[in-house]
Design a protein around this nucleic acid. Structure first.
Lengths: 213, 213
DNA sequence: ATATGTTTTGAACATCGTTCAAAGCGAGCA
DNA sequence: TGCTCGCTTTGAACGATGTTCAAAACATAT
């Protein structure tokens, strides 16, 4: 009664607990990818993986918990994408451009799943999830590292990172909701280039502005 | 059957049709203001105004239609607020700052209702609502008018307006969802000032940066 | 006063998220 | 082997939702 740290028994099927978590998360992600937030339902998700809804409640939690899992995975994927984008050795301004490009390409490639991250509103009383703040911090740290050579002052850099991050978020958000196309025909990536060029004050052209989209 | 433009009969209660529309819209707005998107339900809305749900279906439509009405009103209120903000005679850079300030103040004063505008996702197959595109255009035209003296070229100005609009939207969005405070302690208005100062290249201080918040 | 057409509504339908209590099954002990 | 313990899985149920149907209530026009 007091010990039993290992486990009393084991699961029935061919999945252990972690595999089941991954199964649920990937199935939910697929549902969102194909039909958006409204396509993610508990009964539907359960039938997709061939389980009863209660199994998901026992292993993961309610629909909010499932959404959190998907969002955590999405942020990790975004993080990996951005890391790969700044891996090359290039001048800082080009790195900033590459970062914005990778961000917007990620969003364009998976708009529904990315939208879930900000469409999902947590209850206003519950505290901010730790893992979310950490994931966000890791990603913005990446931006800060890229901006470090151009903005030496730490305070100013922190403000610049937050501002640029919010601006990119706005471009991506309005783009996926088709509200950006109402204002201008340019792609969000072109606008991001404009933003970064003007914000960072790299007055001339940063790159020959190759147009392949 | 062919004519009868006026009306066959009249409503029962003390409200005519337009008054009823306004009643529904304002009640729905109040619900959202107090409890957010999740607090807006058809049965709850009906009981709030003392009618049966079916009356709302007959006069307004389904819950999506109600949401649209609230959002139209919100955009009109925002439009009026921004118009008032640029009414004063001042140098263009200060006007741009005032515009951003008014926008973010509007969002901060009514975050839940404002969030409804972008939280509400229309079906991906249905076309964009005309009135929404028009309302958006009117508001961004205001920004374009403010920026006109500083950016004479029409193409460049259109891009700048879209970019700044998206950036403001991002600041407001991350602010209401408490994701901006994770990154930096500064208020979104301070970050907007930084954004505009850097974007518009008004290198020095635009205003003495009076701090009253 | 009767007929007409709209407004209003009570009841029903389908579905949803979630919970409860029982059945199913693997592991440890006798 | 047989048995119990404890976790896993589930069928059924509960409450609530958005939405629709058909009937009742009502104001007007003849």
């Amino acid at each position: 009664m007091a010990g039993a740290e290992k486990r009393g028994t084991g699961p029935r099927g061919e999945h252990n607990r972690d595999e089941f978590l991954a199964l649920v998360t990937k199935a939910a992600e697929g549902l969102v990818r194909r039909e958006g937030l409204r396509g993610l339902g508990m009964r539907r998700l359960a039938s997709t993986i061939g389980y009863a809804p209660n199994s998901i409640y026992n292993a993961v939690g309610d629909l909010d918990a499932v959404t959190m899992r998907v969002n955590a995975r999405t942020l990790a994927r975004l993080q990996a994408t951005l890391e790969a984008a700044v891996a090359s050795e290039a001048a800082p301004p080009e790195k900033a451009m590459a970062l914005a490009d990778a961000y917007l390409a990620f969003v364009a490639a998976d708009p529904q799943v990315w939208s879930l991250v900000y469409e999902h509103q947590i209850a206003p009383d519950s505290a901010f999830p730790d893992w979310y703040a950490e994931a966000l911090g890791q990603t913005t740290d990446l931006v800060a590292r890229v901006l470090a050579p151009m903005i030496p002052d730490a305070d100013e850099r922190r403000q610049a990172v937050a501002t640029l991050w919010a601006a990119l978020h706005g471009l991506a958000s309005l783009s996926t909701s088709r509200k950006l196309a109402v204002l201008t025909p340019e792609s969000p990536r072109d606008l991001a280039r404009l933003l970064i060029r003007r914000f960072l004050g790299t007055s001339g052209s940063v790159a020959p502005d190759r147009q392949d989209a």
